[in-house]
Design a protein around this nucleic acid. Sequence first.
DNA 1: TATAAACAGGATAATTTTATCCGAAATAAC
DNA 2: GTTATTTCGGATAAAATTATCCTGTTTATA
Lengths: 152, 152
Amino acid sequence: MSSNYYLYMFSKACEYGIKASIYIASNSYENKRVSLKEIAKSIDSPVAFTAKILQDLVRHNIINSVKGAHGGFEIEKDYIKYIKLSQIVEAIDGDQIYNGCGLGLHICDEAHPCPVHDQFKTIRNELKHMLENTNIEQLALDIKSGVSFLKV
Amino acid sequence: MSSNYYLYMFSKACEYGIKASIYIASNSYENKRVSLKEIAKSIDSPVAFTAKILQDLVRHNIINSVKGAHGGFEIEKDYIKYIKLSQIVEAIDGDQIYNGCGLGLHICDEAHPCPVHDQFKTIRNELKHMLENTNIEQLALDIKSGVSFLKV
DNA sequence: TATAAACAGGATAATTTTATCCGAAATAAC
DNA sequence: GTTATTTCGGATAAAATTATCCTGTTTATA
């Protein structure tokens, strides 16, 4: 049981989704459309699984896809700065940021709180605030300039 | 893919472990030893799975178990206030609070950060601080006094 | 129009997490 | 000592998540 891989913030799917979006954004600045294969290689993720996640992001209008030869994924340049981490997380993992109880109670609010309701509310709100105020542009520029990294 | 149950803080195992510990503590104040069955019912968790988690907590010396008739689980009264949430989480989910990268990079530190390293570090540190500074005593007393709840 | 490149999406498999079952060992009470 | 109660621990099953495979469709280009 012990020594697991836990205390997630996000699912693998969500991790891949965030990294893929950043990679696509960083290329869209140079009007470079990127293929699934290139994305998966660049963010070190399984190709076919990444495909599913990208499809999901396309359906949620977060990224655009172009089929056929010379196709691939891209994000409209002017739109990049408006994409928040929260949108990606919501598209992939759902909206549990906003209502999930830290201890899994079905009902957990001020009137009927779980034992750690207040403590968790603080952390959750900070996480939520961070996700809603971090946009892909900042992150993509750091990747382009080599300040941060998408793999290893 | 969408509309899942995500954005965990903890695994189910960990949720059950925390709730069980609080329930045991709140009964140990009255020198009441509680059985697996009673615990599972009180925290609304699957009996056999809860048994595994309790075994884990026993092995980590967080709770005590007594076999046989009139047996059950308990926590030494004077010890209750020293049990932090962080101990329970570590016992069950491992020590990923301290080193896991939010985007799953194998290496993620100041010198080689993932794109959201700084943002996550803040949240992680606050979560860590909260877990290390919340003890079972406070939580158990709130349960006893009906201020907070372990199920529904 | 034929071909190659590339995304879409259904089916299936592997892995992990969650959950159940059952026999063994311990202990209190009769 | 027998019985009932209760934890322990191994084996197994179910469900969810992660990952792969394969076929179809779209599109640029020769």
